[in-house]
Structure formats: structure tokens, C-alpha cells
């Protein structure tokens, strides 16, 4: 790949993410099988594939939620394969979960503050610095507005609806100011209006952020993505831009053929 060539490049010139032949099995099931892909600066990559194709597992391998059986993961050129989840997050990787996972007793605002500080050194500080604190609070408020949770800022996680939880997932990922965001079906279970807002939000993100998106909703996925990879039974079966993927006969057969057009629901 282009980034690993000379050895004299600065960090910024490395690809944000390079996944090299990662595999993972559960018992006899090969959930992810020798998958490789790269992500360049500011790129929007969609990962498609039928249920059980291994998309979430691939995310887990990239983030460190799960250890890979083999293969390597590089963040900005650094091999992070052996690093635990939180160390990868500190290096600028953020993700959302397909099944919303929040803090029942924290308010929306607190979720965003917590997420914002995650990659910072002072995350466990026993000292509150006023200026920084109020700046972070303002940021949290703005972010809550952006994802549509502005009026729910002081509401606890346990009180949020399904749609609000999805929005909070995305907001938490953004709050960390990452350079890569992995979104696992962020639109699942959202109303059409909420989907539109989410799409607009993703399109409005700065190009310094690269996005990997797993999404069953084609409108959201293909509007946001510049490039698509398709997984099936753990293997990468196609790669290309949205038009190529839609036209690919193999892809149509395993995935789009049966499902494109139907608002297929996979909220689990």
C-alpha cells in the first residue's frame, strides 16, 4: 500500500486505517475471513452485506472489542493489532454500536462530556478546570443540537427512546473528535425524518474525518459513501464506488438483488 513505502513519511501521510487480512472465527464459524481494506483521509466507506455477513465482527476487530485470530490492523501506519480497545480509541478511533449501549444514570450532556474526554489525558483528572469544563459543556450542547437531542440534554440514558439512543450513539462518537468513525447501522430504527437528519449530519462532517458505515438503509449508505465494500459469509466479495456496486451481478445476487428498495429492518 502506498503509505508504508518510504519509511520517512510523517504520521499524517499514512492512511488513517489499514486492515490487513484479518480473520476471526467463533467455534466452527468463520465470521470474518481474511478481510483487507484501507481507508484514506476523509473517505466515506460503506460496508454492505446480508445479516450475519460479519460486518459488526469486522468492526470489533478494527476497534479491539475482539481480538483477531490473524491479520493486522494499522491506525495511521501504527500497528495496533495488540492494543486494547481504549488505547485504539485514544489514538483517534471512535465507534457506535449496533445495539445502543449507553449509561443509564448519565444525562445526554454527561454522555457527551464523558465521550469528549475519553481520548484526552485529563480523562481521570481529579481537578475540574472551569474554562475547559464550560467549553466542553458548550461543545456538548452544540453536538446534542446537531443530532437532534438538544431538548433532551438533561435527560438520563434510561429515559431515552430507541431513536434517541441511536442519535446519542452517533453524538458520542462525534464528541470524541476522532479521525475515524465507525458507525454500525446508525439509522436502524430511526424514523424517515430522523434518517434524513442523520444523513445530513454525516454529509456535513469535516473531510478530516474518515467514516466507515455499516448500514442496511441504502439511501443513507449510498448517499454518504464514496466507496463500498461488500461482505458475505465473512469474505470480502466486492469493492467499488456506489454505482459499480449497484451494478455488480454478484452483489445483486447475494444482497441487493433481494433486498434493495425494501426498507429492510434489522434493528436488534
Amino acid at each position: 500500500m502506498k503509505a508504508t513505502g518510504t519509511g520517512q513519511q510523517t504520521k499524517a501521510t499514512f492512511l488513517p486505517l489499514r486492515v490487513d487480512k484479518v480473520s476471526r472465527s467463533f467455534g466452527g464459524l468463520q465470521a470474518v475471513d481474511q478481510v483487507s481494506f484501507t481507508l484514506s483521509v476523509g473517505e466515506r466507506l460503506a460496508i454492505l452485506g446480508p445479516n450475519g455477513a460479519g460486518k459488526s465482527t469486522l468492526f470489533n476487530l478494527v476497534c479491539g472489542d475482539l481480538a483477531a485470530d490473524s491479520g493486522r490492523v494499522y491506525l495511521r501506519g501504527e500497528d495496533v493489532t495488540g492494543l486494547p480497545l481504549h488505547h485504539r480509541v485514544r489514538r483517534g478511533l471512535a465507534r457506535t454500536y449496533q445495539t445502543s449501549s449507553v449509561f443509564a444514570g448519565l444525562t445526554v450532556g454527561e454522555h457527551l462530556m464523558l465521550a469528549h474526554r475519553g481520548p484526552e489525558k485529563g480523562r481521570l483528572s481529579l481537578w475540574t478546570r472551569r474554562a475547559i469544563q464550560s467549553e466542553a459543556a458548550d461543545q456538548a450542547r452544540n453536538l446534542a443540537e446537531q443530532v437532534g437531542l438538544g431538548s433532551r440534554f438533561g435527560v438520563q440514558g434510561s429515559e431515552l427512546s430507541h431513536g434517541e439512543l441511536r442519535q446519542l450513539e452517533v453524538a458520542m462518537a462525534l464528541a470524541a473528535e476522532p479521525f475515524i468513525i465507525l458507525l454500525d447501522e446508525p439509522a436502524a430504527g430511526l424514523s424517515p425524518a430522523e434518517r434524513e437528519r442523520l444523513t445530513a449530519l454525516l454529509l456535513s462532517l469535516q473531510t478530516s474525518v474518515a467514516i466507515v458505515l455499516v448500514e442496511h438503509d441504502m439511501d443513507v449508505a449510498l448517499t454518504v459513501a464514496d466507496r463500498v465494500i461488500v461482505l458475505e459469509s465473512g469474505r470480502l466479495i466486492a469493492e467499488g464506488n456506489p454505482e459499480e456496486i449497484e451494478a455488480d451481478p454478484l452483489v445483486r445476487a447475494v444482497y441487493l438483488g433481494e433486498q434493495h428498495g425494501q426498507p429492510q429492518e434489522s434493528a436488534s
Binding site: C63, H86, V89, R95, F103, A104, L114
Partner: peptide, 10 residues
């Protein structure tokens, strides 16, 4: 509230 999620925030 959620130790796994906390780790996923860094």
C-alpha cells in the same frame, strides 16, 4: 453504569 462502553470511549 456500563464498564464496556466506558472502555469504548477511551
Amino acid at each position: 453504569d456500563n464498564r464496556d462502553r466506558l472502555q469504548a470511549l477511551g
